[in-house]
Design a protein around this nucleic acid. Structure first.
Length: 803
RNA sequence: GCGGGUGUGGCGGAAUUGGCAGACGCACUAGCCUUAGGAGCUAGCGCUUACGCGUGCAGGUUCAAGUCCUGUCACCCGCACCA
């Protein structure tokens, strides 16, 4: 037989698949379906990273197996192509972003095709295509109509390098998640999406989906629901202050109050505050701090006491001082708290620093003068009038009833989640389809005007004054009001990159529809996505945003499933050979093109699946790839030893069935590494016999096909098997045949191995023990001792306990 | 600080969930083959000269512990003054 010429074979089959549209999903909605999805890439100038194929190969394997099992499979691919790197590259090199995008996509596509993924290329989508972003804009209009998109002047995160606002989700450790530059706060008018309205649904929906736990936990923490009480405190100057607390039971222990420096009441009270200068100075310092500084300085408490105004604790009418301090955040709760230093660590720190009284109201801990007692489970209420003697739980209920009755408190649920800042001051994004009219305010474009196409211009540099580059394009900006016809201006901010990716999986269902984002029939059939694999870094960004949009689309009847993804898994990163993250600057980047050239796509696929636990990070190893190549070489040369026998030989039948079982189950469990190990083991067993039968070879290469599709398809053809491998059926195993007739068991004396025996698999417990005791080694060990216990674990071991 | 996770040979990693620790692969060693080897084949490969000892460390439960319990250490990831 000829040599294993992977380059030639891989090209050959890729061309055949292309030509025959082998992997195009069928529009026959009566078939059982499987919708597998991986995150579509951002087509960067660097080309494909070896990390991309880890995820793509895994779901490709699942998809290929599902096809052999008879499913109508949709495994699509597309391009998340709007975004800053393209725009920056375009500016630097004076090439239009659309050309840069086109080139990058061509390169990515070539690389993906070279890896033999079974994507349905007829459904390719591109977020920068007007026929696609027409529907992104349409969704925005629907959000606007339902009051979920609004423009608001607010303090936003501003990246000093990108010259652009960022969503809270995009700020990591106080710096920009994309470029690592400092993020400062800036007052700006921005389009916002009310994701907070969906906090409850986003949380509750997690109970009904099959996401790996760390994804659920991370989303739950990010949404951050807490149940508590909102309480109204009076003041000595008439106004009331609302506070939120989860520990209403400790109300009698409130010895002061803290307001956030940004609290609106401070402005109202300007003429009543005795030390206004001091307060203003503190407000200014707080405002100047970047997010990074603010977290850095988090340990040390600072603050200013307001002179001339005191708060009144509603439970006992005690007058208590009010402070402002930046440890209270304007963005959470009501922006003001009651401080109970005896039972809250932060309040305790502050009280110590400012020498404020600490009153114990929950007994059961250490001395509250020495440290705060925060345990809710064991304490008993003291110094709290009608709450005395109650447990924390009971006291919470009682005080809530009391407050509600008096009309000064109510049960409240709070979330950490904040609304989504949706404007970006950049060129390369979807235009927001809104017009500003002096008379009518913001007016949405009529749906018939969509898509609102991005103007094609020469200059799209960001401006230093924080305005979008589109603002300079007056021809485009100046328009008429859709409502009254008067001269008006278009919104010049664009949407964030997360917009296009928040619904792309819906478009794959019906990608060429120009009447709606996808037809109901297509959505009903394909959704929800059966399996979505992607990176953990998207858990609180893309994954949360797209769930929000999907739930909204569900509520307005545009989609038919309440959740977009039935199942979510996540892959670990592929690290450089030195165990560090791959990056140009570290010089440890592996180029997939080189691997394909030197070892072939099949080897690359097998290697990436064999590299380790799919969910964990794994370092690349140039020498380990050879193992995968050797494995495929051996599979190839096995063809020479094939006999015409159409049977599985009895002596290896059990291992065969076990391997079918293992590979079948491991693919479903994403344990690709052990599936491949099982195939290697079986190959070793077969090789040792010096030949392989036709029936055995058929099964073997079918099992290997999802992992190494080109070589197996070629071998199928060379061996003259019927049709094409991708049209055959996935092998079935027989549970009864998975067990060998004879098994080796070990004999332990007091838990130590003393002998090994070959016994029939169905031997009785008594017979096994008898047989064990008949062994010479065993006889020596138990001779003259008392047998205390004898155990037989079927097919495993005999243990004899002696004294 | 809170939440999640991980510690197993020289390396990547297995272990049917309490039942032979180290599957499978890499690297390595020896031999064969070869003009040659970054090729192939065969054998070996946790530690220890041994008795034995071994899954981060210390205890415990059990006939039996990588797996369960208690304590402890280290590292990774996420959130971080969220009231």
């Amino acid at each position: 037989m000829q040599d294993y010429n992977y380059s030639k074979i891989e090209k050959k089959w890729q061309d055949i698949w292309d030509e025959k549209q082998t992997f195009a999903a069928k529009n026959d909605y009566t078939l059982p379906k499987f919708y597998g999805l991986v995150e579509f890439p951002y087509p960067s100038g660097q080309g494909l990273h070896v990390g991309h194929p880890r995820s793509y190969t895994a779901i490709d394997i699942v998809s290929r197996k599902k096809r052999l099992e008879g499913y109508n499979v949709l495994y699509p691919m597309g391009w998340d192509a709007f975004g800053l790197p393209t725009e920056n590259f375009a500016i630097k090199n004076h090439i239009h972003p659309s050309i840069v995008t086109e080139n990058n996509i061509a390169n990515f596509k070539r690389q993906l095709k070279a890896l033999g993924f079974s994507f349905d290329w007829s459904r390719e989508v591109n977020t920068t295509d007007p026929s696609y972003y027409k529907w992104t804009q349409w969704i925005f209009l629907q959000l606007y109509k339902k009051g979920l998109a609004y423009k608001s002047k607010m303090n936003v995160n501003w990246c000093t390098s990108c010259k652009c606002v960022l969503a809270n989700e995009e700020v990591v450790n106080g710096v920009c998640e994309r470029c690592g530059s400092e993020v400062v706060h800036k007052e700006k008018s921005q389009w916002m999406l009310k994701i907070t309205d969906y906090a409850e649904k986003l949380l509750d929906g997690l109970d009904n989906v099959d996401f790996i736990d760390r994804v659920k936990t991370q989303q739950r923490n990010w949404i951050g629901r807490s149940y508590g009480t909102q309480v109204t405190f009076g003041t000595t100057i008439g106004d009331n202050i609302e506070i939120f607390t989860t520990r209403a039971d400790t109300l009698f222990g409130a010895t002061y109050m803290v307001m956030s420096p940004e609290h609106p009441l401070l402005e109202k009270w300007a003429d009543k505050i005795g030390n206004l200068d001091e307060v203003k100075a503190y407000q200014e310092t707080a405002a100047k701090k970047s997010d990074f500084e603010r977290t850095e300085l988090a340990k040390d408490k600072t603050g200013v006491k307001l002179e001339g105004v005191l708060a009144i604790n509603p439970v006992n009418n005690t007058e208590i001082p009010i402070f402002i301090s930046d440890y209270v955040l304007i963005s959470y709760g009501t922006g003001a708290i009651m401080a109970v230093p005896a039972h809250d660590t932060r309040d305790w720190d502050f009280a110590k620093k400012f020498n404020l009284p600490i009153i114990e109201v929950v007994a059961g801990g250490e001395d509250v003068q020495k440290q705060a007692f925060t345990d809710c489970a064991t304490g008993v209420l003291v110094n709290s009038d009608f709450l005395n003697g109650l447990s924390v739980e009971d006291a919470k209920v009682k005080i809530q009833e009391w407050l509600t009755e008096k009309g000064i408190g109510s049960v409240k649920t709070n979330y950490k989640l904040r609304d989504w800042v949706f404007s970006r001051q950049r060129y390369w994004g979807e235009p927001i389809p809104m017009v500003y009219c002096e008379k009518c305010g913001y007016v949405p474009l009529d749906e018939s005007e969509l898509p609102l196409v991005l103007p094609n211009v020469d200059s799209y540099e960001p401006t230093d004054n924080g305005e979008s580059p589109l603002a300079k394009m007056t021809d485009w900006v100046n328009t008429t009001c859709p409502h009254c016809g008067a001269p008006a201006k278009r919104e010049t901010d664009t949407m964030p990159q997360w917009a296009g990716s928040s619904w792309y999986f819906l478009r794959y269902c019906d990608p060429h529809n120009d009447k709606e984002l996808a037809s109901k029939e297509a959505l009903e059939y394909w959704c929800p996505i059966d399996w979505y694999n992607g990176g953990m870094e998207h858990t609180t960004l893309h994954l949360l945003y797209s769930r929000f949009w999907h739930k909204f689309l569900y509520d307005i009847g545009a989609v038919t499933s309440p959740e977009p993804y039935a199942k979510r898994t996540s892959h670990g990163m592929i690290l450089g050979e030195n165990g560090e993250k791959m990056s140009k600057s570290r010089g440890n980047v592996v180029n997939p093109d080189e691997i394909i050239e030197n070892y072939g796509a099949d080897t690359m696929r097998v290697y990436e699946m064999f590299i380790g636990d799919f969910e964990k990070a794994a370092p690349w190893s140039q020498s380990s790839i050879k193992g995968s190549k050797r494995f495929l070489d051996k599979v190839w040369s096995l063809a020479d030893t094939m006999t015409d026998e159409d049977i599985i030989r009895p002596e290896i039948e059990a291992e065969f069935h076990r391997t079918i079982k293992k590979v079948t189950e491991d693919i479903e469990g994403l344990k690709m590494n052990t599936a491949i190990a099982a195939l290697m083991s079986l190959l070793n067993t077969i090789s040792a016999t010096g030949k392989i039968t036709k029936a055995e070879y058929k099964i073997f290469i079918t099992l290997l096909n999802p992992f190494a599709p080109h070589i197996t398809e070629e071998l199928w053809e060379i061996c003259g098997f019927d049709g094409m491998l991708n049209e055959t059926a996935w092998p079935k195993f027989d549970e009864a045949k998975c067990v060998d007739k004879n098994v080796e068991i070990v004999v332990q004396i007091n838990g130590k191995i003393r002998a090994r025996l070959n016994v029939p698999a169905d031997i009785s417990s008594a017979d096994a023990i008898l047989l064990a005791k008949d062994n010479d080694n065993v006889k020596n060990e138990i001779d003259g001792k008392n047998i205390i216990k004898e155990l037989y674990v079927p097919k495993k071991l005999v243990n004899i306990v002696v004294k």
